[in-house]
């Protein structure tokens, strides 16, 4: 049943990402048109549970979705299977999640 779990994870992560991508694009357009610089943006995001959790969810969804997509590519193009395939997929997930969450920690002022 691993394939069904992975299929659900990919579909659910896509469903989470879709509105968050739109939110992010809208936010960037708003911030740029409003003339906000980096300092002013950070002043609004520091200590914000809302922005921290929103972008945190986005990072996790991206990490899951990307790792599963790369898993498929590694499986079909490199013919990887079993532990090697799973280990590399987890490695991609952890790397993306670490980098993304670290950036969010900077955004909300936890680092």
């Amino acid at each position: 049943m691993l394939e069904i779990r992975l299929y659900l994870a990919q579909r659910i992560s896509a469903a989470i990402m879709a509105p968050l991508v739109l939110l992010h694009l809208g936010l960037m357009i708003y911030a740029i048109q409003g003339g906000l610089d980096a300092g002013e943006i950070l002043a609004r995001t520091r200590g914000s549970l809302f922005w921290g959790s929103t972008y945190g969810l986005f990072v996790i969804a991206v990490s899951v979705h990307t790792a599963l997509g790369l898993r498929n590519i590694m499986r079909e193009w490199l013919q990887l299977r079993g532990m090697v395939l799973s280990s590399l997929s987890w490695l991609f997930f952890c790397g993306l999640a670490f980098a993304g969450l670290r950036a969010i920690a900077g955004l909300v002022g936890m680092s």
Partner: peptide, 11 residues
């Protein structure tokens, strides 16, 4: 059809 080589492999 839900196994390792089943329907979820379709792109």
């Amino acid at each position: 059809v839900a196994g390792d080589a089943g329907c979820h492999r379709c792109h």
